[in-house]
Design a protein around this nucleic acid. Structure first.
Lengths: 163, 163
DNA sequence: TATTGTTATACTCTATAACTATA
DNA sequence: TATAGTTATAGAGTATAACAATA
């Protein structure tokens, strides 16, 4: 929400305009603000399918990589194992995926999407693609690719720095 | 964490490589992953000052806009008013800001940073700038500006779409 | 009537320790 | 000893309804 410029505001001693100008110089702040905004629209796009962002993501990697184990899903999505349990539970309860026993390792489950899961994923993916087109209406494909590369470079640099 | 390519994994029926390739095509997913990574490093950078991202942000806009009212801070940072209360409480308890009465509106408080608040903000800002330099080591100033413009365009488009 | 700050509340997200059953 | 999945738990982050005081 932008605060409109006001002439001498008699309610305080502040300047004519208020702003988050200093914060806006930080890449991190702009990334956060962009993500919050995107997330809000994406959540609305996924609501008809009763999927949250993280359940959609988990379903997506399971559809894409049949036979995944839970620890691998957690690694791929950078989610802690304990937090993934309820997500997988939910997908299984809705019969979008199945947990199949792994013959050679009785501790592990092999995750597979059901037909229903695949179909829901397909429909939801169309909604996500529509959402994506909405959030960068004027970007050409080359710009988007470049932007993604830069975001990935930042992700990697921050991860290296944090490690 | 990238999953290294493995030769025939006998633990499952999966392909040779597993990936989040489909998700990586989405700008939103890459923004989220980048932000998570950045956030983690930033939190570590702010820890010596006992500041969280949101407390630093609030302190920052109060330092920059003396006399702000709480509702204006909430608008600037896109935080719900109720959630801001505890943040402002914390800053006030640490004597980094003061809540001054507004003579012309007895419902409102006028927020000002104390000398201590200004000094802590200065030191913390140096740490944040150092953090920022770490997370995009190879970007020149022009690239960063362009990236911020694109992120702002996305933020705005998603907000318009979501409204 | 509307707004400022507040309380209460609830839901999601994230992070850690510790357990079990297997390897 | 280490690993896969799980349980319990706690801390953040976020969102809404409703209230008192004031405009």
């Amino acid at each position: 929400m932008t605060i409109s410029n006001t002439k001498k505001n008699d309610k305080s001693t502040q300047l004519d305009t208020i702003s988050d100008y200093s914060l806006r110089k930080f890449l991190g702040y702009n990334i956060k603000r962009a993500f919050n905004s995107v997330q809000s629209d994406l959540q609305r796009s996924l609501k008809p399918f009763d999927l949250r962002m993280v359940t959609y993501s988990a379903l997506s990697v399971i559809v894409e990589n049949p036979g995944l184990r839970q620890a691998q899903v957690a690694d791929l999505l950078d989610i802690e194992r304990p937090n993934l349990v309820v997500i997988i539970d939910k997908l299984q309860q809705r019969e979008l995926i199945v947990r199949a026993p792994v013959k050679t390792d009785r501790r592990a489950y092999s995750l597979h999407a059901t037909l229903m899961g695949i179909q829901l994923h397909e429909k939801a993916s169309k909604a996500v693609h529509a959402h994506e087109r909405r959030i960068y209406p004027n970007f050409d494909q080359k710009m988007v690719k470049q932007l993604i590369l830069e975001l990935n470079a930042i992700e990697q640099a921050a991860r290296d720095s944090d490690a």
